[in-house]
């Protein structure tokens, strides 16, 4: 589904991603871990199409298409969803209006008729239950006055509404208490099918207790330096990131 090959990305002449490679297949859940400042969020932004980054080398293929040729809204309509680390507030725009606009733009792209009012409200209700959101959401402005936990739940709610093929969840666990973490993770698990894939970006292993990954990758200095299964995350939690650094330095000195 997603193939990232030899990707190099810079911002303001500073290289963030350095020969980054990753392949994600349908039905898989990948976790990308690593210390701060190693380029995890940059990776998420580049896949989603944020134009402040410059891709200097490499390619990203998504469903066989060259993703880097597509504007961000087309990527979204093609089924790429980014769960934001810092969801943005849009005052005065109700969640219902925002979601209806998004759903209909995606439907239009697929050649479908706009969704009817009643069907849309039904869909909202159904998906709200998935992340245990209170009923008042429809009329609230997008993320305005939401608590940290509500914002993250709202990201997963939007993911459920838009039914993406590839979801990238950027630090979805940060700022969540244990109950919210469970709710968010349950939401993600319920949305998991054999046809879609999820990339979870996180600092901590604790999210992976709830969302069990098929693959765990450790990122350091702009690339993946170690990959394994879910046990890698546990090992990482026990030994800390210094363990990876030491291993890298040892390899480098040979």
């Amino acid at each position: 589904m997603l193939q990232i090959k030899h990707l190099r990305v810079s911002i303001n002449q500073k290289e963030i991603l350095k020969d980054f490679n990753l392949e994600v297949k349908a039905g898989e859940v990948h976790a990308i871990m690593g210390p701060n400042g190693t380029g995890k969020s940059t990776l998420a932004s580049v896949i989603a199409g944020r134009d402040i980054f410059e891709v200097t080398e490499g390619e990203i293929l998504y469903k066989g298409k060259n993703l880097l040729d597509l504007p961000p809204e087309t990527r979204a309509r093609e089924g790429i969803f980014l769960g934001f680390q810092y969801p943005v507030e849009i005052p005065g725009v109700s969640m219902a209006n925002f979601m209806k606009t998004a759903v209909n733009e995606i439907r239009k792209y697929k050649g479908l008729e706009p969704i009817g009012g009643a069907d849309f409200l039904k869909l909202m209700e159904e998906k709200k239950k998935l992340v245990e959101i209170q009923s008042k959401l429809n009329n609230r402005s997008v993320n305005e006055g939401f608590s940290g936990g509500e914002k993250k739940k709202n990201e997963i709610f939007q993911m459920a509404m838009l039914n993406p093929t590839l979801s990238i969840l950027d630090e979805t666990d940060s700022g969540l208490d244990i109950d919210a973490l469970r709710i968010v993770a349950n939401g993600v698990n319920k949305l998991r099918t054999k046809d879609n894939a999820t990339v979870v970006i996180t600092h901590y292993q604790r999210l992976l207790d709830y969302i069990v990954p098929d693959f765990v990758h450790v990122m350091y200095d702009g690339k993946i330096v170690k990959s394994g299964d879910k046990h890698l995350a546990i090992e990482l939690e026990e030994k800390g990131y210094d363990w990876i650094k030491q291993e890298l330095e040892a390899n480098a000195s040979i």
């Binding site: 989603a48 504007p71 961000p72 934001f84 849009i90 998004a102 733009e105 792209y109």
Partner: peptide, 9 residues
């Protein structure tokens, strides 16, 4: 960008 990422031009 938040809007674009949701498929809104």
């Amino acid at each position: 960008f938040y809007c674009l990422q949701r498929g809104i031009d």
